[in-house]
Computed example of a mutant assay.
Amino acid sequence: MVIHREVSVNGLTMHIAEQGTGPLVLLLHGFPESWYSWRHQFQPLVEAGYRVVAPDQRGYGGTDAPSAVDQYTIMHLVGDVIGLIDALGEQQAVVVGHDWGAPIAWNTALMRPDLVRGVVGLSVPPARRAPAPPLGLLEKRFGPDFYQIYFQRTGVADAELERDRHDTFRRFLVAASGTGQVSASAAAGGGFLDRMPKVETLPSWLTEQDIDTFAEQYARNGFTGPLNWYRNIDRNWELTAPWATAKITVPSYYITGERDVVRTFGAPDFLDHLPSMLTDLRGVRDIAGSGHWMQQEYPAEVNAGLLEFLKGL
């Protein structure tokens, strides 16, 4: 049974979902999600002998949401993972991240390899350092309506996503799935959700209860804290300069979806470049038919990959 409790981490009160005993596996969610996006991973990992903990990360769900934008930098977010490992009374963890959780997992392994037994990234691969602040490069490549640029407009995306949380999650989760249609840009002169079809019938992997759960979890903090992660992209580029040429040396594994929209952002041969950044890459799993939400859309395939990696540590 998954237990919910609060722990004190870096001055925050953090909500965590926890189950099992054994070596610690941390599951870090992405945007716009919560611990609940890992609901299908708990039981298989627990049955394999692991202690599984999925937090609501800074600004999300049941965890505190600082008001200042600059409290959501990569250093704060990696620091929260380090603080959580300590608060759980552990010396090390396997860190697994999806979407925004993946850069946090990769950077935790990069900055504190002594605390990371292994690292797994879902969807977002480790990124080479950009030659200049990323937002300007993204705007030049994808235009001013690219979603990461749109998210910089303080209060605008916040209000749009909050207007009808149920509709937000229905549109976003379905549109970015393997059977959906999603654009990475806001509609010209419009909003982020305007290019996502209204959803009448949910796909088999997503239920009305799932939508209700996500919507209820965002009732406390809204979307501003999560969006503030995006509003630190250029600041993160400045802060991570000391690791510009560093490689991730701990055992690593990468899971991607064949139809994940994130794959359109990078070079088409990005999989070929993984070994140059991950010196102990143990495997890559490309899930046929999967969109962005692979651990929800194809949990059996994701769980098989995680267990394969964990068994080899």
Rank of each mutant, 00 (worst) to 15 (best):
R285D: 15
P125Q: 11
P203Y: 09
L88M: 14
Y298L: 03
P103C: 10
T256G: 11
K247R: 14
H76R: 06
H4Q: 15
F214I: 13
G155R: 07
D210L: 11
M111Q: 15
R165V: 11
G101P: 12
I248V: 14
R195G: 15
E208D: 15
R282H: 06
A186H: 06
I255Y: 03
G312V: 04
T224C: 05
D272E: 15
G89M: 10
E308Q: 12
P125V: 12
G89F: 10
Q181E: 08
P44N: 06
A187V: 10
F223A: 03
Q91L: 11
V95A: 07
H98S: 06
F142N: 06
A175M: 00
I255F: 01
L310H: 08
Y147S: 03
I104H: 07
I104N: 06
E208Q: 14
P125A: 02
S276M: 09
S185M: 00
K311P: 03
W100V: 11
L115S: 09
Q148S: 03
D167C: 03
T73P: 02
L12Q: 14
D212A: 14
T279A: 07
Q92V: 07
P44Q: 04
E47M: 10
A132I: 05
M294D: 02
P203D: 12
L274C: 07
H29W: 05
G121A: 12
V120E: 04
P113E: 08
L310T: 05
V9E: 05
A241M: 09
A186T: 07
T108S: 15
D280K: 12
A159C: 06
G49F: 02
R259P: 02
E162K: 09
V94I: 13
G83A: 11
D99P: 04
G266K: 01
M277Q: 14
P113I: 09
K311M: 03
Q57T: 04
L77R: 14
L227G: 01
P242D: 01
P268Q: 13
G30E: 05
P113T: 03
L115V: 12
W243M: 03
K198A: 14
I85F: 13
N303M: 00
L274E: 01
W38T: 05
P203R: 08
R165P: 05
G79K: 00
E297W: 11
V2A: 10
V95Y: 09
T168C: 11
I104D: 01
R263G: 14
